[in-house]
């Protein structure tokens, strides 16, 4: 058990996943990506979505400013990153909910569901992007 040796009241701490201590694996990378997409969506997508709704509600002028900003290349990067994050977080979230019922917890199943989830997340994002482009 790893402990903080300088602490007067040593408590167990989690193993460090970042750095040379732990080999990167599909399982840990997918888990970290789930948290990163969650943080990204909380910090960027959620506020942009609220501001988009506000701009729409306030009228055509503010809506035009918002759609204009989203049409710039940084805006488009934001939209694509948000779309991918949403699809990924959705698919990995479903995987986590299945685990919470006690299913699919064998190592082989975890790797298989991981790859299936990645393929589904990319496919969903690409399909939504293609549908949006075809519609506009």
């Amino acid at each position: 058990m790893t402990t903080v040796s300088t602490n007067s009241d040593p408590r167990p701490i989690s193993p460090y996943l970042i750095g040379p201590y732990y080999r990167p694996q599909l399982t840990s990378m997918l888990s970290i990506a789930s948290r990163l997409t969650g943080v990204f969506m909380t910090a960027v997508l959620a506020p942009v979505m609220a501001l988009w709704l506000l701009a729409l509600a306030l009228g055509p002028d503010s809506y035009a400013v918002m759609t204009g900003l989203l049409a710039t290349w940084p805006g488009q990067v934001l939209v694509i990153a948000s779309l991918f994050s949403l699809c990924y977080h959705l698919m990995n979230g479903i995987r986590h909910l299945i685990w919470d019922t006690g299913r699919m917890l064998e190592i082989r199943q975890i790797y298989t569901s991981g790859w299936i989830m990645v393929v589904l997340a990319f496919s969903l994002a690409l399909w939504v992007w293609w549908s949006a482009g075809a519609g506009s």
Partner: peptide
């Protein structure tokens, strides 16, 4: 964020 969204909706 929710208050702003709810107001707009």
């Amino acid at each position: 964020g929710f208050v702003v969204s709810a107001f707009a909706i």
